[in-house]
Design a protein around this nucleic acid. Structure first.
Lengths: 145, 145
DNA sequence: GGTGAAACCTGACTGAC
DNA sequence: GTCAGTCAGGTTTCACC
């Protein structure tokens, strides 16, 4: 997948506002609206843009607790086993296998610490989980996703 | 900010595809296009929806390295000092102050490990940084942002 | 990459609860 | 008063050249 500077600028516009009109983007990058749409379609087909989504503020809905949870597993637990055990919990917004002592890292969002506790309990119910280590988020300093 | 079940379903549609037409969303939730737009406008005004963005796959652009970096700082370094020292590095896609031994947690994305090393060097250049502890991401198991 | 038909967005207005 | 539907206008999108 090849990409030029105009593509990058179009992506930049879409990152700022994914619902902006193609004509607006075209005005910023010096292209007509159809030309912009063609490039966006190409970027989607090429897998560079995987989709468009709304940014929802969880805090505005009362979800004020955020944590990272290290998972320590038995023997050689497969990543797939971890995924399938965690996938049914919507509070787990991201999960990674990682280097270091822990086997996996969970990114969790809950309404409050009590809610977090129930999530942790369910996480620990997976038979391969030996130990969890949680780190609470106090504040977000940077958010560039 | 009050929200009902229809609002939730509209948000669900927008999370799946932020560029879908209001008429399409309306068809899914049983509302007309103008009614959907009114609700979306209200959700944006209420701060629940903070914006719309494109989902870009960094791996497709050759950014294959992802890491979490714990920051250990001197004395009582203010969160604001950490933010301003890290904000100029686009490779840091998120930063949090956290509980536990570390003072902050950085979420970093780079092209490769060599690139990560240069980022870590610049991070360590901040005068308040005593130590960093990095954890490399091996694979993403879940991604629900 | 630029042009017309079709679809979409978005105001104001009207009616129902 | 609140919320949804209808309609008209201007705008955006998409197949075609």
């Amino acid at each position: 997948m090849r990409t030029d500077e105009t593509d990058e600028r179009i992506i930049g516009c879409l990152l700022r506002d994914a619902r902006s009109a193609y004509a607006d983007i075209g005005a910023q990058v010096g292209l007509s609206a159809p030309a912009v749409k063609r490039r966006v379609d190409r970027l989607r087909a090429g897998g560079l843009i995987t989709g468009f989504t709304a940014l929802v503020d969880p805090a505005a809905l009362g979800w004020t607790t955020e944590a990272f949870v290290e998972l320590y597993c038995t023997g050689r637990t497969s990543p797939d086993a971890i995924r399938s055990a965690m996938a049914d919990q919507p509070e787990i917004i991201a999960a990674y296998t990682v280097t270091g002592e822990a086997d996996a890292l969970l990114h969790v969002r809950t309404r409050d610490t009590a809610h977090l506790e129930t999530v942790l309990e369910r996480v620990r119910m997976a038979p391969f989980v030996q130990q969890t280590k949680s780190v609470l988020v106090l504040s977000r300093l940077i958010d560039r996703r």
